[in-house]
Design a protein around this nucleic acid. Structure first.
Length: 423
RNA sequence: GGAGAGGUGACCGAGUGGCUUAAGGUGCACGCCUGGAACGCGUGUGUACGCAAGUACCGUGAGUUCGAAUCUCACCCUCUCCGCCA
């Protein structure tokens, strides 16, 4: 969420930056009208309340000094004033609700280093690492490899749960677990993150702070009869650890890593990526989350990206980094790097990590602050997060990149300690 | 799920209708004192909205009242005991 006063004073800038994302410019007109209506209502009702407070004190004085009778006309006045206050408060409540609706729907401002563009075709490649592995046989997609080896079972998963679920067996299940441990060990031991294991169900305020609600409820699974949602990413519980808190400046940056399963309804993606592990309702992810001062966040994004890249480098997987253009940027993000891993079985790069700087957009929604050393006024922190990495996609990338002519799968050396040294 | 106790500022803790402008303490910041420190003394110490005056905020939401931290109702959370359970 952007600051109310900032939008009011920079209406054209916000309008222009929202337009760069290619959406919802008319929101800003609604904002302007609703905002000024709110301000005038506020002035009127606060004036009345101010009077009421003064008069109530007078009434107290009169009653105390035994002149209760003289208070009667004042009390009658206040009864009338309260009528009006009630009306205005009611109207104000309605206005504020719709204003909130508008402000919550305005996306973050994109960072000036973000290329302007319409969709993913305008994303800018900023780095490429490694090279495509050479095969002297036609490489297969992971679903064929997995079904042939009996380690990926989509049919039975469909029986259990439906489409977009997978049953991992034997080597695949073991490899999934190995990858989780490998990633967590790397980030905690070498990159300075603190490991956390958060709840996988969160409430509405948590989903609202990170930006999934109110706009994107359709993407979430909700628990019937409870104010609880299955998390679509560990970003939600981990960022919310410090919701409604004030941190000390010397505690920043704070870096957390968490393994969680992630649950996504994938509404609106019917027919896309229907085969294999690419797009599931449930998948595992190791997430990186950072809380920083405003001065630190730009550099922190580069660091977070490097931490995620390190996983692929150690696994020996060919990848590239793209910076998302304005039109492809997520709602809450000011800047996002996607890491895309090479998949020889499908002859393309696919997203395996998304690393974003949210500036104070989430911090304002969740009231996450820090106190600059020696100052009494607190400020909003900056939040960042990124996948480090999506575990399911890492698994399938290993399967496709390390496949052998006989249909078996090799292993990156760094995983051997996690796989008891063998398949 | 049942019974009981409780939720007040960064923290502890007082406060059952109007000098509460939330006492007192701890912590923290700044200043004085000191060769330097401790002790002591003094000052300050939240958030949101608003250009400001000001308004709102004592778990959340409704209500009663001229006036609510304080009274009423509902809900949420924490603790103890019981039941159930991995």
């Amino acid at each position: 969420m952007l600051e109310l006063r900032f939008i009011r004073e920079n209406l054209d800038l916000v309008r222009e930056k929202t337009a760069r994302r290619g959406k919802e410019e008319q929101l800003l007109d609604t904002f302007a009208a609703t905002d000024s209506r709110r301000l005038s209502l506020l002035a009127e009702v606060e004036g009345l309340k101010s009077t009421r407070n003064t008069v109530s004190e007078q009434i107290a004085e009169l009653k105390k000094s035994g002149r209760g009778a003289e208070a009667e006309p004042l009390i009658a006045d206040m009864r009338r004033a309260n009528q009006r206050i009630k009306e205005l408060d009611g109207e104000l409540g309605g206005i504020e609700e719709s204003l909130m609706g508008v402000v919550m729907a305005i996306p973050n401002l994109c960072h000036d280093s973000v290329p302007v563009g319409k969709n993913e075709e305008d994303n800018l490649q900023v780095k490429i690492w490694g090279s495509k592995p050479a095969f002297n046989f036609p490489p297969k997609p992971h679903w064929e490899l997995g079904e042939d080896l009996g380690i990926l079972d989509f049919e039975r998963a469909a029986k259990l749960s439906g489409a977009r679920f997978a049953l991992l067996k034997g080597f695949a299940a073991r490899l999934e677990r190995a990858l989780i441990n490998f990633m967590l060990d790397l980030h905690t031991e070498r990159h300075g993150y603190t490991e956390v294991l958060p709840p996988f169900l969160v409430n509405t305020p948590s989903m609202t702070a990170t930006g999934q609600l109110p706009k994107f409820a359709d993407d979430l699974f909700r628990i019937a009869d409870h104010d609880l949602y299955l998390i679509p990413t560990a970003e939600v519980p981990v960022t919310n650890i410090h919701r409604d808190e004030t941190l000390e400046e010397n505690e920043l940056p704070r870096k957390y890593t968490a393994y969680t399963p992630c649950f996504r309804a994938e509404a609106g993606s019917h027919g896309r990526d229907t085969r294999g592990l690419i797009r599931q309702h449930q998948f595992d992810k190791v997430e990186l989350v950072q809380f920083t001062t405003p001065a630190q966040s730009e550099e922190a994004l580069e660091g977070l990206l490097a931490d995620a890249e390190q996983v692929l480098q150690l696994l020996g997987l060919h990848y590239r980094v793209v910076v998302l253009c304005s039109g492809d940027l997520g709602f809450s993000a000011a800047k996002t790097y996607d890491i895309e891993v090479w998949l020889p079985g499908q002859d393309c790069f696919r997203e395996i990590s998304s690393c974003s700087n949210f500036l104070d957009f989430q911090a304002r929604r969740g009231s996450i602050r820090y106190r600059p050393s020696g100052q009494k006024k607190s400020r909003l922190v900056h939040t960042l997060n990124g996948s480090g990495l999506a575990v399911g996609r890492t698994l399938l990338a290993i399967m496709e990149n390390y496949q052998q002519e006989d249909g078996t799968i090799g292993l990156p050396e760094v995983l051997l300690p996690y796989m008891q040294g063998r398949l």
